[in-house]
Design a protein around this nucleic acid. Sequence first.
DNA 1: CCGGAGGTTCGAAGTTGTTCGTACCTCGCC
DNA 2: GGCGAGGTACGAACAACTTCGAACCTCCGG
Lengths: 115, 115
Amino acid sequence: MSSMPGELPVPEMADVDLGTVLSALADPHRRAVVLELVAGDGTERACSSFPLPLAKSTRTHHWKVLRQAGLVRQRDAGNGTFVRLRPEFGAKFPGLLDVVAGLSAARSAHLPSGR
Amino acid sequence: MSSMPGELPVPEMADVDLGTVLSALADPHRRAVVLELVAGDGTERACSSFPLPLAKSTRTHHWKVLRQAGLVRQRDAGNGTFVRLRPEFGAKFPGLLDVVAGLSAARSAHLPSGR
DNA sequence: CCGGAGGTTCGAAGTTGTTCGTACCTCGCC
DNA sequence: GGCGAGGTACGAACAACTTCGAACCTCCGG
């Protein structure tokens, strides 16, 4: 699974907890990152390319939270690290990333909600 | 906004913040409540009818969090209080409650969820 | 009128989460 | 080899959240 060179360990999708995911997405900085990843083309992206106004160690912390929540995969490539969304995530929590991305109701805009 | 007798104040839907909502839903107790409400028929429900293993004051706290997050409406009826989901919520964040309810992808996914 | 069920408000305690600085590591490059 | 950019690990400071108990309030039923 994640035994590729430089691939940091991630939890199995079966072990991913919704509460942990929601906590991860509740933070504005982390949500901004996820937002950019969702808006992207799915390919990996340099961690250093995110405009987070935070100390290095704090950024590392946020990557770990996102990784352990099961949202992203992280690759250590020599002098830099890269992240990308886990494609399986959308299958486990369909629609969740759409909500975060603000594209409310990607495919079912007229749900009568209440009833 | 809501000036019905006993209706506790709730934020306008326009003022509802996604981060606040996700924080509210991240808590297992609050999520359990929302889960039951989603599974219900949309009518209000007595606050005392939820099997939360918590002190009274803690329950009051959680109702406030859910209310201020914009998820529920709360009515004070004499000797008891009642809650119900805000129907407009589903319109603002379509699919979000479906994810919380575990009915991943209400209408277009055939994932192997569960376990 | 009195008692109790259901709720709220107010602190206080303990836990968790965010942030940072410092020290240290590993590459790529000159 | 030496330097710097990019990252990690650790500890400390601070903020936020969760939980509770005690005091108090408001109804409804007897």
